[in-house]
């Protein structure tokens, strides 16, 4: 009798996990870079290809690093939110235009507004790989020491901003 209960026990354990699994997103891969220094790079800027941007310039500040592209549908969802955030002027937002063309990126900004303090251009996606980007949009919160404190996978939503990003930025700024 007792041994005959083993299959049922195994099944119930599996059911427990499956139930939990229903509320997990199998595609969201947490970044191992959280808590590590943001990878260095030097990329041309969108507004002026002659000049470059490097994360070193942001040392001493808490900033958001937003990876976007004009071909990315979900970027359209987060764009107005970023525009609003930048209007508040509470945290600098650096954009990285990922695997995109300049004219299309410029057109996108002309239409939706430009929430970015600076935009770096990652035309071949190499810096994206360094940052472990696997789907745009992705947003990193980087602290004063240049460490990645948080990574938002997928569009920045109001909820994510209110519950995670803004409190985190405030805490980091106070440090």
């Amino acid at each position: 009798m007792k041994r005959a209960l083993i299959p049922l026990a195994i099944f119930l354990i599996v059911v427990g996990f499956l139930f939990k699994g229903l509320f997990l997103n199998p595609r969201e891969v947490p970044s191992p870079l959280v808590g590590k220094p943001a990878p260095q790079f030097s990329l041309p800027r969108l507004d002026n290809p002659e000049t470059t941007f490097s994360p070193k310039e942001m040392l001493g500040k808490v900033w958001l690093f937003n990876v976007w592209a004009s071909w990315c549908g979900a970027c359209r969802d987060e764009h107005p939110i970023l525009v609003e955030l930048s209007k508040a002027g509470f945290v600098p937002v650096i954009g990285m235009d990922y695997k995109d063309t300049r004219p299309e990126a410029q057109q996108w900004l002309d239409q939706g507004g430009n929430p970015y303090n600076i935009i770096a251009v990652d035309a071949d996606g190499r810096v994206g790989i360094d940052y472990g980007v696997y789907g745009v949009p992705e947003t990193y919160v980087i602290d004063k020491a240049g460490m990645i404190a948080y990574k938002q996978i997928g569009p920045v939503t109001y909820d994510a901003l209110r519950d995670k990003i803004i409190p985190l930025v405030k805490r980091l700024q106070a440090q």
Partner: peptide, 12 residues
């Protein structure tokens, strides 16, 4: 679950 329970009950 139901059938495994039935199994546990009747298998002996």
């Amino acid at each position: 679950g139901g059938s495994l329970l039935l199994f546990a009950w009747r298998a002996s």
